[in-house]
Design a protein around this nucleic acid. Sequence first.
DNA 1: TATGAATGAGTGTTCATTCAT
DNA 2: AATGAATGAACACTCATTCAT
Lengths: 193, 193, 193, 193
Amino acid sequence: MKKKDMNKQVKIQDAVAAIILAEGPAGVSTTKVAKRVGIAQSNVYLYFKNKQALIDSVYARETNRILSTTDLDRLSDSTIDVTTRIRLYVQQVYDYSLANPDSLTIIQQIKALNGQGMTISAADADPNNIVANLLTAAIDAKVIKQLPVSLHMGVVFSTIHTHTTNISKGRYAQDQYTFDDIFQMIWDAMKQD
Amino acid sequence: MKKKDMNKQVKIQDAVAAIILAEGPAGVSTTKVAKRVGIAQSNVYLYFKNKQALIDSVYARETNRILSTTDLDRLSDSTIDVTTRIRLYVQQVYDYSLANPDSLTIIQQIKALNGQGMTISAADADPNNIVANLLTAAIDAKVIKQLPVSLHMGVVFSTIHTHTTNISKGRYAQDQYTFDDIFQMIWDAMKQD
Amino acid sequence: MKKKDMNKQVKIQDAVAAIILAEGPAGVSTTKVAKRVGIAQSNVYLYFKNKQALIDSVYARETNRILSTTDLDRLSDSTIDVTTRIRLYVQQVYDYSLANPDSLTIIQQIKALNGQGMTISAADADPNNIVANLLTAAIDAKVIKQLPVSLHMGVVFSTIHTHTTNISKGRYAQDQYTFDDIFQMIWDAMKQD
Amino acid sequence: MKKKDMNKQVKIQDAVAAIILAEGPAGVSTTKVAKRVGIAQSNVYLYFKNKQALIDSVYARETNRILSTTDLDRLSDSTIDVTTRIRLYVQQVYDYSLANPDSLTIIQQIKALNGQGMTISAADADPNNIVANLLTAAIDAKVIKQLPVSLHMGVVFSTIHTHTTNISKGRYAQDQYTFDDIFQMIWDAMKQD
DNA sequence: TATGAATGAGTGTTCATTCAT
DNA sequence: AATGAATGAACACTCATTCAT
């Protein structure tokens, strides 16, 4: 009960996220969600067309959260050096992931749930995606390797997710590795030469 | 259809794998599995104690497949240079993953399904694990970065998985990138200096 | 068909009771219960948490029925002679059992179903139990035999149950034996000297 | 493994009895029985036509056990006083029940399982029944009350069963009450005047 | 906006029984 | 005499979804 003004829609999404983290994505049911929120089961359908729409909305919410904590303007500011912008991007994902260690997990879980079918705003498929554009530009400028954008993004996502999951599961302390340690690995993977 | 001598047990596991790939892990039900194999639903329980045991067995089968195509002797042969052995390991995972593009996906899906709890033969937790030992040795020898083994393994797994998934989904042709291209990225991420 | 105002909960309990009488307690299944009531099987779970809760509720209902037709105040009224009160108690059980010949059967069946474990409000285990108190007092006053309360209650229960079952199965007519005939047997068994 | 020569048929019946005592009559399944005996499930059908036949045979076995430890000759020996013979009968049931505290429980459980339908060799329905004859004679001779035989038998059965169950459940020690104590209650219930 | 009642399809699992070997 | 494989029916229970109020 952090926020008082939280509306039901958000509470429902929170419940879904909590269940995904606690029981995996297969554990999500309207029954459990409603129970957690403290509303009638049928009430879920007032806010979401059906279960899929609910889960999609949680997915969208989490991905948008990352974007909203991201300084998109600077990422697309071509007056800034590409390398700097990439580092900035990684830093932002890193900071976000440390602050919200479950967020990436939720995203990944929902992706897994939907099997092959899901491509909701998949990074390099979305032409509007600023990050994809940034990386494509970096590839063209031969700053990073001549490899698919998805590989570059995968390294960023995977490394940070593994790292923050390790921390949140207590496998090691947060201060045992600095951002620079982690970034070094990511950047070495990406950079050309 | 080379499945002639296949016994039911294997057919059932195949059906599970196929469903996981088609619908995600949450789509697996004994009903669907049985229908796919062409047996009565209750028959599944002749071969597997319960659904979890079935899924676990599929998970184990896929992980063992990798191991069985892996030359463990050479990976643990200390007369061979550590760097060479790591390259050998990556090459083996790469070859396997290209030949069995779904295998890593299945493994990842089952992991996701089981939520937080799963650590079945988790790489750096298993003291007997040869790869973990190899990487640990490489870390000690300062050949690869002073980072958790899980980060190193994550880069290998994630990069190869993303790459072979891209290929099997037709996002680009297999010959568009060589093993060396992919290995370069992985090795740059891992190696010290 | 006097069941007009009956709500579903009660209808379901009635169905369970009817099945127990017709097929024994092992014959109770949610499917059969629902079919008898004319609702969907899943509907049973709207009214009862699970099957055990349903059966327990039927048990509780039958035992409460006896209590509610019993004049507890007089049974515990110490201004009344103990012997009189015991006779009153037996009379009440007798009247109830004649009016509801299946009730004791249901109670006994459910007890049997649950195996050894059941002691729900078991007579001489429940300190609040008024009848147990009455009998204990009678034992202390040497009015009835120096034997366990459960033996005294067993004679009452068993004799009346056998008798009313005989009647309801048409083995003999109700007026063939008076209450006094039956009570004589019970009281002879119980009384001291 | 008391007896070495025990044949399977008997072992299977033993398993059924054990399950009834442990889980109640509803817990009996061919699967569990076979597992307990250490044979294949289908093997049960080599010895018993079906499950009902198996359970009936256990019922018959237990009732026959009582009879076989009973000195039927003396019970029907008309040179012996009726009162003496009844006491003898009660004593025999008592001894048997103390030695085999589960036997009466099993009989009662199986009766309950089958619901209304069961009348397998019900005491006073069986014209050959020696005990019924004895009691009928006693009624005619006005030695015991002018009440249905089933009431007389019920008092015997119920009182002894309650008593021995109390003992085997540790509610009190066996030597706390003598046979005479118990018999007194039973005989007072039965005897005329 | 909110609810509770309702339902049919689905879940995993166990069962009694049969049959070829 | 014994088995393992097979099956269809049943089981308790959960689900997503709808609808009248």
